[in-house]
Write a protein that binds this DNA or RNA. Sequence first.
DNA 1: TAAATTGCGTAACCTTTTCTTAATATGCGG
DNA 2: CCGCATATTAAGAAAAGGTTACGCAATTTA
Lengths: 226, 226
Amino acid sequence: MKNKEICILLVDDEPDILEIVGYNLTAAGYNVLTADNGKKAVKLAKKKKPHLIILDVMMPEMDGIEACEQIRKIPELEKTLIAFLTARGEDYSQMAGFDAGADDYITKPIKPKILVSKVKALLRRWETEKPEELVTLGNLTIDREAYRVLLEKEEISLPRKEFELLSLLASKPGKVFTREDILQNVWGNEVVVGGRTIDVHIRKLREKLGDEKFRTVKGVGYKFSV
Amino acid sequence: MKNKEICILLVDDEPDILEIVGYNLTAAGYNVLTADNGKKAVKLAKKKKPHLIILDVMMPEMDGIEACEQIRKIPELEKTLIAFLTARGEDYSQMAGFDAGADDYITKPIKPKILVSKVKALLRRWETEKPEELVTLGNLTIDREAYRVLLEKEEISLPRKEFELLSLLASKPGKVFTREDILQNVWGNEVVVGGRTIDVHIRKLREKLGDEKFRTVKGVGYKFSV
DNA sequence: TAAATTGCGTAACCTTTTCTTAATATGCGG
DNA sequence: CCGCATATTAAGAAAAGGTTACGCAATTTA
């Protein structure tokens, strides 16, 4: 089943739910990841970039709403689908969830068939909207999935950090990313690195891909330009 | 509200539902069309190409499921969002609806706030046409996100302080900003700088963007004028 | 498993740009 | 024509970023 390529992150603090939902989704051919609190969820999401995230609203550590907001802030996950799990009748949760950027909600108790149907419906849209896994900007082509970069049809191999950095900047050409933005997205929230680290990586990118593509905006940050 | 451009087709055979749902959607700024059976719905959909269609499942003439299937067959409406209205607990309807190509379902009894939230969530994805955050004033264009300024289509590069200053003044053309206002906003509350600093920056802006745009109001401050 | 390679972050130093100041000139309102 | 507020200018300080080389760690290769 070609669904194997489709990845769903399932987040709930109740192992039972994790199991039953996970089982059904797996049976439907999806690749399922799980986390038992919001913090782990955000971390995993950043790392694995799932196509759909199913979040329980009520959780310890970080509730679903907050997790959703966090995830929505990550540029690469902007298009990720998010659905909430909520007990029936919790209108408030549903509202807040939609405001936080949810695409759907699923009410407990969970009915496997309905669940799978909803998931399919959600992903159907994703599949049709997503022919463009390749981004081309000038003489540069970025294939996020394959972790490859082509410059004038020549393949350039970039180490992880450089790739992530390029990927971030290129995700919104023209937009200035502050150093903070960059640290946040490429290095992660908690990591602390020295002040010149970003520069060094930028330099390497410039070396390999051409100076002019990476514009410095002094006092602010960097941007990608075509 | 710019939602006026967004068009929703609402289909139900009960006038009450049509009215209450229609009212709420209209109040939320959407443009609402209605039909009271499946046949009319398909016809209207073909003609008006709404962005979202809300279909009651149970209807005379042609039920929602069939209408949905019909609509999905129309190439132009392939991407149209479809949501079903269904009584709670009708699992069968829900399943069939998803199979027919629905994107969501809404259960009766209808709660207006939830309804509007769901509609927003559904359309959010569609709405992702980005409204550029550009400010244009006469021959000048300011793009805060990209940190760019265009004068007669020529890009002018401005250092941070100059950009912030321009940005502030241009945020309310005509309004006079006192020196204090300016210090507050561009330099920040705690910073103390000499009395002539602002003048110097104004001068640089005048040099680069034209004298006439920055008017001195003696004893008070500066303003931007078109 | 050792050796070699590659990736990453840091420190030290260099270059450039940006900001501020200070000193002097100008000009408007009275 | 005076006085106060603003304009102008150049120069030096400070900030920001660029560059390079090095060491540790992870990864790959032998």
